[in-house]
């Protein structure tokens, strides 16, 4: 725990809450359309492929590849100022959708486009359990 760092908290609305409730339990999950069985992200009120409005949230493998990353040297929220510089990455999940996340461990030390990653969860922040990625 790093109490002096406060990440912005998610907007837990009826559409996004299933993602965050599972993240709280250290599970990374995506919504699959109950009609066309395709998955999308971020969570939406209707399936962007067939417009059906019911989804099954299923855990994903946690395997991903690194697409890109940046390192913030400027804080847009006061709560992250003590964390500078911090990285943000873009990963492609094995199941298809991409996620914006953070790199930890070996992936943080030596990121490379296309490297294999696996999800892990960080308790670094007092108010939230965040899915982040380390080298596979």
């Amino acid at each position: 725990m790093t109490p002096d760092i406060q990440r912005p908290l998610p907007d837990r609305n009826p559409i996004s809450a299933p993602f965050w409730e599972r993240a709280d339990q250290r599970v990374l999950a995506l919504p699959w359309c109950k009609k066309c069985d395709q998955t999308h992200f971020p969570p939406s009120p209707r399936c962007p492929y067939c417009l059906h409005d019911a989804f099954e949230w299923r855990p994903v493998s946690g395997r991903a590849t690194l697409v890109s990353w940046v390192v913030f040297h400027r804080a847009y929220w006061d709560g992250v100022a003590a964390e500078l510089p911090y990285n943000v990455c873009q990963v492609e999940l094995e199941e298809g959708p991409r996620l914006i996340s953070n790199l930890v461990g070996a992936a943080k030390e030596a990121p490379r486009h296309g490297m294999a990653l696996k999800v892990t969860f960080t308790d670094r922040y007092p108010d939230i359990t965040l899915p982040v990625f380390d080298a596979a």
């Binding site: 990440r7 912005p8 908290l9 998610p10 907007d11 996004s16 971020p42 697409v67 890109s68 990353w69 940046v70 913030f72 847009y76 929220w77 992250v80 964390e83 911090y86 943000v88 873009q90 914006i100 996340s101 953070n102 490379r112 486009h113 296309g114 939230i128 965040l130 982040v132």
Partner: peptide
């Protein structure tokens, strides 16, 4: 806070960061 978004908890915000992300991919 001017432009809240889904990726805020990971600290990702601003058009500049989006373009930085794209340019890093271009570099790689």
């Amino acid at each position: 806070e001017e432009s809240p978004g889904f990726w805020d908890p990971w600290g990702f915000t601003s058009m500049g960061a989006i373009h930085a992300m794209m340019f890093r991919e271009h570099m790689e």
